[in-house]
């Protein structure tokens, strides 16, 4: 039943991981961080606040800075992800530090400098780039922000390396591939491959192992419950007691019963209420509430 893991599967996992990073952690970090920087740079000046917020140019500058900051955030994030796959913080610390500074900080600085030049050249032409306070006051602050963003993304990458998130995912994938994708059900003389996702409940009655699908079709299994349990994905299936294994999607609700036990109600059409012992109750709750 074991299937070898296709190299493409591992590659897809890595791509999914990057996509996950892009869509979740980075998204709120980028948008929130860029908004903070834009508002900070736009508002933190010597003009009285009550006058500043009534000038349209204030909002224009904030929106422009927001887009610039978003681009810089995205750039630093992409550089960090790119470096994560090539230079490990743990094994090649010096090389990684130098590369991160060169590309992450240096590249972002060049980008910010270019944005400022373009802004002063085409949008805010009253100021001549290089002659006002930009280089003395705003630019060092921007530099500090970029240093902070680099440290933040690098810190997250280092933390992820330490906790070895990616190998774990690969390990999970390996295990997933080892779990049964079908079970061989017996109906009369026929042996039928029952897809694992259609299995709602597996139970033992009078020493015979029975499999029930979600549409309440019953099959006989030619192996003991313990053997079946070993081949099932523990993320999806749980052995609630000696007689029953349930799939997560088949669990409709559960409620506490006397003496720390749990009563489990399955998705209709199953009407039987399963009782889970006090000993198993805590593990079952954790499994349900993941």
């Amino acid at each position: 039943m074991q299937e070898p893991i296709h190299p493409g599967y591992i590659r897809r996992l890595k791509i999914d991981n990057i996509r996950y990073v892009m869509m979740t952690r980075s998204r709120w970090l980028q948008v929130g961080g860029a908004a903070f920087i834009a508002i900070f740079l736009g508002t933190f000046n010597s003009a009285p606040l009550v006058e500043l917020v009534r000038q349209p140019v204030y909002y224009r500058d904030i929106i422009i800075t927001l887009f610039q900051a978003l681009l810089i955030f995205t750039y630093i994030d992409l550089v960090t992800i790119w470096l994560n796959n090539r230079l490990s913080w743990q094994t090649k610390f010096i090389s990684r530090l130098v590369t991160q500074i060169a590309f992450g900080l240096g590249g972002a600085t060049a980008l910010a400098y270019s944005f400022a030049y373009l802004h002063y050249r085409f949008i805010d032409s009253e100021h001549v780039f290089g002659t006002d306070s930009f280089l003395k006051t705003e630019f060092p602050v921007i530099l500090l922000f970029m240093l902070f963003i680099n440290s933040l993304f690098s810190g997250i990458a280092y933390y992820q390396e330490l906790t070895q998130k990616e190998p774990n995912q690969v390990e999970t994938a390996t295990k997933e591939a080892q779990f049964a994708t079908t079970l061989l059900g017996i109906q009369g003389n026929r042996k039928i491959a029952v897809p694992i996702d259609t299995v709602a409940l597996i139970s033992v009655e009078h020493g015979i192992t029975w499999l029930f699908t979600f549409n309440n079709t019953r099959y006989h299994l030619d192996e003991p419950l313990q053997k079946v349990a070993e081949r099932l994905d523990p993320v999806k299936f749980f052995r609630v007691n000696r007689q029953h294994i349930v799939q997560l999607a088949a669990c409709f609700s559960y409620q506490s019963a006397d003496f720390g036990k749990i009563k489990l109600t399955l998705t209709p059409p199953f009407t039987t209420e399963l009782t889970i012992s006090q000993k198993t109750a805590s593990t079952f709750r954790k499994w349900m509430d993941r």
Partner: peptide, 11 residues
């Protein structure tokens, strides 16, 4: 046809 109801906490 059975509707697969995901687990929901009690009220």
């Amino acid at each position: 046809m059975i509707t697969m109801t995901p687990f929901r906490s009690i009220p």
